[in-house]
């Protein structure tokens, strides 16, 4: 087995171990922290597909994260109030229904945003994706039916057949399982001919066309899959907090997801887990000490970018992923 694959498994196993030890020692709050890491890492896995493997520096992935959250909260609140949605469709509290809906809606948004933004590159791509996310952010702010600026709460976590989702460990198990599934899908995709073409377009789109591959559809499919994974993460995050607000779509959130990927290692499978874990650990350890803890994250990010461009995982493996 390759060293990188061993590291990927080890990082995931450490997250699971952390949650189990926390549960065994009665630290339910720490289990919730592990759940938060798993969910944010899932969003990072989504962005990593576009950013790490496709070189698409999207500064608007919070839009898909937020869409997933809003789909979850809207379906749950309609179910709780027994109010039908548009066209008489009922709300639901079933995760197995909510997840696909959240992923499909996020995927459609990804298709539209991707189709309109992938014609640009570099800083223009960053700005266009950011603009779309901010547009959706302001749409959420100005939508009073679903809470507007205050956000939308739902009081009972959505349900999963045969699992008590209100208990911290089963909900962590659900989130960790979905993270593992996303990692598996990501690994299969990046090793497939499609994934290789995506990595080739990242390195040189013109050279890729000379092999008969058109970069645009390859990038668009990757962008849509990436959006769907972020939508799923947003759905779980809304369920974790039983609340969603426009803040989940703001550029801060896009930046945070990007930080997870860069800290952990761009284009590394388990990089987002390592990145999210370090970020949340700093938040938990330094947040109570100082309001300026994000400044330290900034310094850490600067050090990583300057001295360890392969991120935490690259540092451990002592190699860069990208040339």
């Amino acid at each position: 087995m390759r060293r990188e694959a061993i590291l990927d498994i080890a990082i995931f196993a450490l997250l699971v171990l952390f949650a189990l030890v926390a549960f065994a020692t009665g630290q339910n709050f720490a289990v919730t922290i592990a759940t938060k890491i798993a969910i944010l890492a899932l969003a990072g896995v989504g962005l990593n597909l576009a950013l790490g493997y496709g070189g698409l520096v999207s500064f608007g992935h919070a839009a898909f994260f937020g869409i997933g959250g809003y789909v979850t909260a809207i379906l749950a609140s309609h179910a709780a109030n027994y109010e039908p949605l548009a066209f008489g469709l009922p709300g639901t509290t079933q995760m197995l229904v909510i997840w696909p809906v959240a992923m499909i809606v996020a995927g459609i948004a990804g298709l539209v945003i991707g189709a309109l933004s992938l014609g640009t590159s570099g800083v223009y791509f960053i700005m266009v994706t950011l603009a779309f996310a901010q547009m959706l952010y302001y749409l959420a702010v100005s939508w009073p039916a679903y809470g507007g600026e205050d956000g939308l709460s739902f009081y009972v976590r959505n349900s999963f057949p045969g699992v008590n989702t209100l208990a911290p460990v089963p909900f962590f198990a659900i989130c960790a399982s979905l993270l593992a599934l996303a990692l598996l899908v990501s690994a299969c995709l990046t090793r497939s001919r499609f994934g290789l073409a995506l990595q080739a377009t990242r390195q040189n789109p013109m050279r890729t066309t000379a092999t008969g591959i058109r970069p645009f559809p390859v990038r668009l499919v990757a962008f849509v899959i990436s959006a769907m994974i972020c939508g799923l993460a947003g759905s779980l995050y809304a369920d974790l907090n039983r609340f969603v607000s426009p803040a989940s779509m703001s550029w801060h959130m896009s930046g945070e997801i990007m930080v997870f990927v860069i800290l952990g290692g761009v284009g590394r499978l388990a990089g987002p887990i390592a990145g999210a874990a370090v970020f949340i650990a700093l938040e938990q350890l330094l947040g109570p000490v100082s309001d300026y803890w994000l400044g330290l994250v900034g310094v850490l990010l600067l050090l990583i970018v300057l001295f360890a461009p392969g991120g935490i995982t690259g540092l451990i493996l002592r190699e860069k992923r990208h040339g």
Binding site: R193, L196, Q199, A200, N204, R207, T208, G323
Partner: peptide, 16 residues
């Protein structure tokens, strides 16, 4: 102008 980060096998596979 090969695809540097990809392996030899991956460079050949992507064009196949």
């Amino acid at each position: 102008r090969v695809f540097g980060p990809l392996t030899v096998e991956e460079n050949l596979t992507v064009a196949a």
